[in-house]
């Protein structure tokens, strides 16, 4: 009965998850003629610098998102239910606009002759710096950090705050000793949901990076655009492994009873 009910899901999963993965793996280990080769994998060493830079920027963006997102999620979760809905709507509103358009708008704002410099009458050079790319990642992916943490905190029994302060916790230590540990699963989801798109983005780095540096997403895009399917597949494959490892590490920190998270 159960297996019969699960059948559509399995078909779905095979068709849209397993098959594409197999295709990626197939291309990673073959050459243009379709013969087995390890050259693509061996060639990955050329991209080490790009990998490291991508990890660095994605990590920084994730940390910034967490530092901004956790207090924000906490504050929203502590409002009256009506205000919570309002704030969450505000947070979601920009997401109704396409990611590309939002990134373009950031370009218009930060450009050398852009909105910000015109407004302030300054000559800040922002586009093309690491900072601009990190800002773009934070701006685009912040809601993915806030939402799971908010959901998690808003589900915590309100008596937890009272019980903690009753037992001697100052308002700050209530958060550190009780609320933070209880929102760990939300934090893990948030970190994963920001880190994964950040490390694989190509659009943000292209536009806000001003073409001065390349991230792993750009590399993959370039490979496929120039029809180097096998190299592109190999880099994708390597990145997938990298992401899987990071998720595996993340799950080590989460409550084993909650079963960790699946992206």
């Amino acid at each position: 009965m159960r297996s019969a009910a699960a059948a559509p899901h399995i078909v779905w999963a095979v068709l849209f998850i397993v098959v594409p993965l197999i295709i990626v793996v197939y291309y990673s280990f073959t050459d243009r003629s379709g013969a087995f080769t390890l050259d693509n994998i061996k060639g990955l060493g050329d991209y080490t610098q790009i990998f490291l830079l991508s990890v660095e920027l994605a990590l920084i963006a994730t940390i910034v998102c967490f530092l901004v997102g956790y207090p924000l999620a906490y504050i929203i979760a502590r409002q009256k239910p009506k205000m919570q809905k309002f704030y969450i709507m505000l947070l979601m509103l920009p997401m109704w606009t396409n990611l590309l358009i939002r990134t373009y708008s950031l370009m218009a704002i930060f450009d050398d002759g852009g909105f910000l410099n015109t407004l302030l009458g300054t000559q800040f050079h922002i586009i093309g710096t690491k900072g601009a790319v990190i800002f773009g990642m934070v701006y685009d992916f912040l809601p993915y950090m806030v939402l799971p943490i908010y959901t998690c905190i808003s589900k915590i029994d309100p008596f937890m705050w009272e019980a903690a302060s009753d037992l001697g916790c100052s308002p700050l230590s209530v958060i550190v000793k009780v609320i933070f540990p209880l929102s760990l699963s939300g934090i893990i989801s948030g970190i994963t949901m920001v880190f994964v798109p950040s490390i694989s983005t190509f659009y943000i780095s292209q536009k806000l990076g001003g073409g001065t540096f390349e991230l792993i997403g750009d590399t993959i895009e370039r490979q496929f655009a120039s029809n180097a399917l096998n190299t592109g597949a190999a880099i994708s494959f390597a990145m997938m492994i990298l992401i899987l490892i990071s998720i595996w590490i993340m799950n080590k920190f989460s409550d084993p009873e909650e079963g960790g998270i699946i992206v």
């Binding site: 029994d157 008596f159 009272e162 019980a163 903690a164 009753d166 009780v178 540990p181 209880l182 409550d255």
Partner: peptide, 11 residues
């Protein structure tokens, strides 16, 4: 305080 629904720390 002993709370009505105990409010033990689940973690």
């Amino acid at each position: 305080t002993v709370f009505q629904k105990y409010a033990l720390f689940p973690h």
